[in-house]
Write a protein that binds this DNA or RNA. Structure first.
Length: 217
DNA sequence: TACCAGGTGGGAA
DNA sequence: TTCCCACATGGT
């Protein structure tokens, strides 16, 4: 049985290149804390390609900045973030997140339990923000992580249970957590999503990609 | 055409 | 606690 720590090395061999993007943290694109936090909200149930369009719209208007979002008209925000969908919810979320998090920017990270009380921030978004924008070692469990954990190890647990499995199996360092989560996303996007597993699926018996990872290709 | 994407909130059971 | 659904857009 493949162990958690062992898989990390395999994924690094296969998808390590993807870790180079991202200036503040491995993998997550973004040049500022603000950009990462805004992206974390906009990517909720949304393809990253659509998020990029919204981020670019905000950048052009000088609104890739949480302090400015705080004072921007909500309707303007809605129009700018339209490409990433859920614009009513997400414009509202960006406001609530901004007002909470601005005092922490460039300073200490916000406590996780406080972040979770903010409208629009669930466990995954909270951990993404803490990990990628503030470098706090909180493992991010997303749909890819859940699926991979289920297929590889039969894990069916809650968010916190799966998070605990990863965190207890790895050195508690933010960079390890950041890389690992990014690698899982890249690996998952490159492999089969069909249910039940298609023949030759990576995650069970010799998927092409998995074999590639094994061979360090 | 139908389904999916780096989820969350709110209500019902 | 857990399950279900609305929320919106763009790509395949």
């Amino acid at each position: 049985m493949m162990e958690v720590a062992e898989l990390y090395q395999l994924l690094r061999n296969a998808h390590g290149e993807s870790l180079k993007r991202g200036k503040i943290s491995p993998w997550w694109p973004g040049e500022t804390q603000d950009e990462i936090i805004i992206g974390a909200v906009l990517t909720q149930n949304t393809r990253w390609g659509n998020v990029e369009k919204s981020l670019e719209n905000l950048r052009k208007e000088g609104l890739l900045d949480l302090r400015k979002i705080l004072h921007a008209p909500e309707e303007k925000l809605r129009n700018l973030i339209r490409p990433s969908g859920f614009q009513r919810q997400k414009a509202s979320y960006l406001k609530s997140v901004s007002s909470f998090i601005v005092p922490y920017l460039g300073s200490r990270p916000p406590p996780r339990e406080d972040l979770l009380r903010v409208k629009g921030i669930g466990e995954e978004t909270a951990d993404s923000i803490l990990l990628y924008a503030f470098h706090v070692p909180e493992f991010v469990v997303d749909a890819y992580t859940k699926r991979l954990s289920r297929r590889l190890w039969g894990l069916e647990g809650s968010y916190r249970q799966i998070k605990e499995v990863f965190e207890s199996s790895l050195p508690r360092r933010w960079r390890v957590f950041a890389e690992y989560h990014g690698l899982i996303v890249e690996f998952s996007k490159a492999t089969c999503r069909k249910k039940p597993l298609c023949s030759g699926c990576p995650l069970r018996d010799g998927c092409r990609h998995f074999t590639m990872a094994h061979n360090g290709l």
